[in-house]
Amino acid sequence: MTAFAQPSPLLEARDLTKLYGNVQALDSASFTVGEGITGLLGPNGAGKSTAIRIFLGLTDATSGSALVMGADARNPEARVRLGYMPEHDCLPPNQSAANFLTHMAEVSGIPPSRSRALAADTLRHVGLFEERYRPIGGYSTGMKQRVKLAQALVHDPVLILLDEPTAGLDPTGRTDMLNLIRRIAREFGISVVLSTHLMQDVERTCDNIVLLDLGRVKESADVKTLTQETEFIFVEVANNRDQFMAELATRNIQHDLESSAISIPDVDGPKFDAIRDSLVASEARLVRMGPRQRALIDLFRT
């Protein structure tokens, strides 16, 4: 029997470095993951998968340390309350979801007397209760993703690591999966690390992000801070855009054309009046005007 205290933070990387031969996958990366949904972001080769593999105890760091709920990630006990959903297929096609989850619960230390009930409950929560006795091989891609998620949840973890959970899903399936992930965090109280390169998934789901680039931590903050409103104003007009821009220039208002909209920096009271006057003078029909929010994609550009 394992008594497991739940310290904070849930994950902690301290100067984590990983070398594969001459290739540096992680370069003194230090970050923490707390409660809620955290997006682990980065382009291909940023070190996301390596970091996850180290936290899961699948590979050792070259230097530095990785702690899972205060315990060394190399210690199997650290994984007692940790769940993992890989990106790739990893399910036995000839087993039913109920049997597979029951088996996985027992391997995680849940007594056999409780594992079957937990498996059924977990499958109900991911929406596969009716299908639980069918062989997994006959499931659709979306259903398989749900079984993968269910096996990560079946032993009631404190934290689950999800690797590209929406990969291969159609738009509806993707929305459903992201809703489910939000529900896991909000209703079930299970924290989530979402490793993905899809910015929209992170913006729609995550509370915090850790941005990795070339093995280093480029940014680590909460999503609201990173996507807060900027001092830019976006103006979109339906016609006479060139005349409107000319009127802005006449009034010495700095502006840039970004795709179909015009962005104007450092807008204060008098500038708003000048923008209004320019719109009237150019007879441009206003479609939209508002503060511009930074998108997470901008983080990659900086």
Partner: peptide
Amino acid sequence: VIHLYLVRP
């Protein structure tokens, strides 16, 4: 499936 076993305790 071995990947799922090895991330268990």
